[in-house]
Design a protein around this nucleic acid. Sequence first.
RNA 1: GGCUGCGUAGCAAAGUGGUUAUGCAGUGGCCUGCAAAGCCAUCUACACCAGUUCGAUUCUGGUCGCAGCCUCCA
Length: 460
Amino acid sequence: MLKIYNTLTRKKETFTPRVAGKVGMYVCGMTVYDYCHIGHARVMVVFDIVARYFRYSSYDLTYVRNVTDIDDKIIQRANENNEDFTALTTRFIEAMHEDERALAVLPVDIEPKATESIADIIAMIEKLIANQLAYVGTNGDIFYAINKFKTYGKLSGKKLDELHAGERVNVDKAKNNPLDFVLWKMAKTGEPAWESPWGLGRPGWHIECSAMSTCCLGNHFDIHGGGMDLQFPHHENEIAQSEGATNEKFVNYWMHNGFVRVDDEKMSKSLGNFFTVREVLKKYRPEVIRFFILSSHYRSPLNYSDAQLDEAQTALTRIYTALRGVEMVNISIDVSYKARFDAAMDDDFNTPIALSVLFDIAKALNKAKADIHKSQPLVATLRYLGSVLGILQDNSDTFLKGIEADNDLTTEKIEQLIQDRIDAKKNKDWTIADKIRDELKEQGIILEDAPGNKTTWRRK
RNA sequence: GGCUGCGUAGCAAAGUGGUUAUGCAGUGGCCUGCAAAGCCAUCUACACCAGUUCGAUUCUGGUCGCAGCCUCCA
């Protein structure tokens, strides 16, 4: 039975879908004005796992993740680049999809864009005005009157009188209450703008997600996810907007993933301590990044460092080493390992435990290698459960041998040297044999002898 | 200041009211021409102080430390 930690109640709750067998899930996506960093990769991978696990558990899932393709930063960046904002967003949406494909993140079912949802956004704002939850500010912008929404703060645990608005920023005088947030912004000259009953303008950030989620999944749906930092005010505001407009409950389960940190600080643009996905991919393989993300629980903080990535690489090497030489034929899996794996994933998607089950299988496989009847189900189980996490789908030799280095040490040459060494070994010329092995080791090639004058190799 | 959450062995990271997490690293052994890989065994833990309990790392309260949010952010 699947349990999910619900931010709304701060408890793990048994997951009960609104409609038996069906799940609607909305995740706040990226604002596309730059390349995705590892923090973004974490959201993508975490909710990719959630989606994969729902499907593996036979749910009919509709996974929606939006794209924010109009906002202050986008306009600013487009101006800096002296290009149309749509050219900018189109480019970065494509880059985002490239990163996702690289990380084996499966495509979402629906990817709504803010700029293509303007009519829905306007309709929702009109409902909020009709329900007397929104008003026109003195500058013409439309604001949400948060004190009119009785349960404001229920997600983040904040009370209105405890929120010190404007403590760190200047209070906007156009609002009735400093905490009110903008739904529709009047356009300044030269800014992208859309027609609305209130004049030319553009939507506020929060209303986009309310409109896009309810539009794709209905007024009331199962799961809404995103990064921890979106809890307040973004998701709080979404609740106020959606429930205020529809008079229905908005979301049953709120899921928030923890941050990626660098030296125990949040990875963010403003701190300048971020690493883009494509940057890290130059150094580490996609599967290693994925494994690194899965190695801690999705709600825990995840410290980014080369040492951590190196460990992920080593850990994966252990499993692929176990798989080496016993590639799979179609055979039934070992249900006891599957049961342990499922129990881990059912417990709020506990991927570290799920991975530990994979290590247990790898150990059993290492012991069972000589016996094909024992080893085959283990290989099948490892591959199958790995697929739920989006890992271990590579050919083990391909993974272990890695990418050919950018020097003259070709695969052919490596294999020639190995043959030379085998010949030397036959003559018991250990000096030559060891010399070849040492020299290859210096170039990152590890040789491993097997019985019968067979030698396998891998890249360190 | 308010609101969340965290503090686990050398490192990373789960979890539990009493019994092996797991991966890397270390130590001893097996295997090997020697290694590597693998297997077996093994050493390092639960921030601190009280309380509840037959028994707490696990529950409760407090102390200290850290992070996030309270402005845009995954």
